[in-house]
């Protein structure tokens, strides 16, 4: 059997076919390359950066708000200019990208896993558990992110882990509610009735039958929620309760530079903003395409 499978040319095997299909779209290929570059840049930020943007003693106020391609007092070139503290924007963006992507992806994955499994289970079980969970969701949705972040800030202090936690708390309910809605629709369908008639275990029905069928819409929500998590983190920074100012994320850079948007010193906010836009658009175009080519049900 395996011999036969091996003799099938690569492009005719499912993965190969998908890849070939992926390559058909030049935009998607470009998105893939950009995504790869973004990930590498984030991964090797400390090696690529000309300056350690987190080390205050390396910054020089006299190098503050220099436009792109300026020379520093020490003779180095600031390709994307500096912020008001004399921080090299290129280095700050590379480091910030790493933080933002980590915070965005980690918090979304956790919120997604937690929220959607609870939501699907609630839809499947119904009854008291469903009512209870959905009321908790109502409560959670009504609670402003700012208040959650403030309480966490006071109780736990500042930092990446705490912001991630705050974002999980803010977003899990969203997934729970969305997953429950879709799962509720699936639950009434014949195949679930059939599975129940076969006396399959609850866990099996939920994970093997319900979950795959509610996944498509959840994944769309999840991919956009990564971006929202990054934005929320930026917004929290904008409102004054994000990460420490000396260790900026991309969102913090944007919100810090926000004040400069009308000042003519556009680079302080513009480049971080553009970096975020490029990263998110590339990741999403790639994601869209991958979903299209990998989803077996979308095969012609």
């Amino acid at each position: 059997m395996s011999d036969i499978a091996l003799r099938v040319p690569f492009r005719d095997r499912p993965l190969g076919r998908s890849l070939a299909e992926y390559r058909e779209s030049p935009g998607a290929v470009a998105a893939f390359v950009v995504t790869l570059l973004v990930l590498l840049a984030a991964l090797f930020a400390s090696q690529l950066s000309p300056q350690d943007p987190y080390d205050l003693s390396k910054l020089d106020l006299m190098d503050g708000t220099l436009p792109p391609m300026s020379k520093s007092l020490a003779g180095a070139t600031y390709a994307l200019g500096t912020d008001e503290q004399g921080r090299d924007m290129l280095s700050a963006i590379l480091y910030g990208l790493r933080i933002s992507l980590t915070v965005g992806v980690v918090s979304t994955v956790i919120a997604f896993a937690l929220g959607s499994s609870l939501g699907i289970y609630a839809a499947y079980r119904g009854g008291r558990f469903d009512s209870f969970l959905m009321r908790v969701v109502d409560l959670q949705l009504s609670f402003p992110a700012l208040l959650i972040a403030l309480v966490l800030l006071v109780v736990l202090g500042q930092g990446m882990g705490k912001i991630t936690l705050a974002l999980v708390i803010v977003h899990w309910a969203y997934f729970a509610r969305a997953a429950r809605g879709s799962a509720l629709a699936e639950r009434g369908k014949e195949y679930i009735e059939a599975a129940r008639a076969l006396r399959l275990s609850d866990v099996r029905i939920v994970f093997r039958h319900l979950l795959p069928n509610v996944m498509p819409s959840l994944i769309v929500i999840a991919t956009t929620m990564v971006a929202r998590a990054i934005s929320t983190e930026a917004t929290l920074s904008f409102l004054g309760i994000g990460l420490p100012i000396t260790e900026p994320s991309l969102g913090l850079l944007i919100s810090n530079g926000f004040r400069y948007l009308l000042s003519g010193k556009y680079w302080i906010s513009f480049y971080p903003g553009i970096a975020l836009v490029i990263a998110i658009i590339a990741i999403n175009i790639m994601g869209d395409r991958l979903r299209d080519v990998l989803n077996p049900r979308l095969k012609k």
Partner: peptide, 15 residues
């Protein structure tokens, strides 16, 4: 930043 320059290891927290 100024304190860092005279050899103090400094953390900044704005709240």
């Amino acid at each position: 930043q100024f304190f860092a320059r005279i050899g103090i290891e400094i953390k900044v927290q704005a709240l």
